[in-house]
Simulated assay, not measured.
Amino acid sequence: MKTFKELGVRADLIKGIQELGIIHPTDVQDQAIPFLLENGGDLVAQAQTGTGKTAAFGLPLLMKVNPKSNDIQAVVVAPTRELAKQIGKQLFRFTKFSEQKIFTEVLCGGDNFDRQVASLQRPTHIVVVTPGRLLDLFQKKALTLLHVKHLVLDEADEMLSMGFKKELVKIFGLTRARKSTWLFSATIPDAINGLIKDCMSGKPQSLKIDKAHVVNRDIDHRFAICGRDEKTEFISGFLSRQGESRGVIFCRTKAGAIVLGKQLAAKGFPVAVLQGDLTQKERDTIMRSFKKERVQFLIATDVAARGIDVEGLSFVIHHQLPEQIEYYTHRSGRTARAGKKGISLTLVEPRERAKITKLENTLDLSFSEVR
């Protein structure tokens, strides 16, 4: 296993990531970082949530930015406010021990526009932004993209599924002077291939992380057989044994998440529900309560949970298995971070037992049954 030093990462950045518990490179970091540092050309990387993508593109980005210039030199585009803020926080942490500071601004819809305009009057090297807000700020002439050398799209497939194709095409057009484009995506559907063909010059380097190497090996994968009407009682029993441990319960639908939230709240559990119909203000209030531990358990749908970054989660519960295997790794990756252990518990009905076997075979995992 290579070290970050062998990958070419600067000593001050290595010190910063080590303080975050990032000691050994993940597969995507091992493959992406040397290419981005040495070549720096266009890259299309297929990798799941929880594989260390932020460091994979963030460390090379920080090393390529010139801190002596006050121009915006890099743009990182993310689908959600939560993910953008998570990326911005990580980039700031990576540079904790750097002598020459690199300034990053996070610009998201839902935040005060005038305050963002004012913040861009300060030296800014990197902006982490949601698509719509970037275009709004550009149209108001609050920022210039003339000096952008590097464009990063994180979770590109999610941005397309959220309807941001038109915005992304515009962003590509506004950053024509860039030297490189780095696209990270959990899946590469036809829409992504179309975006690559239409908006990226030449043939980008392709990188794909094998699904068998995606899931964190510090996660204890478990499953329980129970009928649909038995799931709430099973979850109640599990939560009552967790003490002060915190976790996320994933539901497949908004309606299911709301119903489960009401059922668990009625039993006295400190829960909150994160689902797509919430306003940004309601969503922010819930996430703030969860991060500050005023809420112990979060119930969420897959789409609503994109970009969640909460430290110290001990477990994840799958109320139902997701429709796509990739989403299992998205969900499970919320626990067992920074070298800690965690539990991923899946509830399946008797007729769904074969799905556990499929997960085991596809992801090279071993599930233990609990009763």
Results as ranks from 00 to 15, higher is better:
199 C>Y: 00
178 R>D: 04
337 R>F: 14
87 I>W: 02
136 D>E: 13
69 S>V: 15
120 L>N: 03
198 D>A: 08
157 D>A: 02
16 G>Y: 08
154 D>Q: 06
317 I>F: 05
83 L>F: 06
149 K>Y: 11
277 D>C: 05
270 P>E: 02
246 R>Q: 04
323 E>A: 14
215 V>H: 10
7 L>V: 07
144 T>D: 11
84 A>S: 05
170 K>F: 12
304 A>E: 05
43 L>M: 07
208 K>Q: 14
133 R>Y: 12
205 Q>P: 05
141 K>Q: 14
108 C>D: 01
55 A>T: 12
107 L>A: 08
139 Q>N: 13
327 Y>S: 12
217 R>V: 09
116 Q>M: 13
207 L>W: 05
203 K>L: 13
32 A>T: 04
298 L>P: 05
221 H>W: 02
182 W>S: 05
155 E>W: 04
323 E>M: 14
25 P>I: 08
1 M>L: 10
293 E>R: 03
54 T>F: 06
38 E>T: 15
93 R>C: 10
245 S>E: 15
232 T>W: 10
299 I>P: 02
368 S>G: 08
31 Q>M: 07
288 R>E: 15
261 G>T: 12
38 E>V: 15
191 A>R: 01
363 L>W: 03
131 P>L: 14
231 K>Y: 14
262 K>E: 01
289 S>Y: 10
370 V>P: 00
317 I>W: 01
266 A>V: 04
367 F>Q: 02
185 S>N: 03
296 Q>M: 10
354 A>C: 11
102 I>P: 00
217 R>E: 06
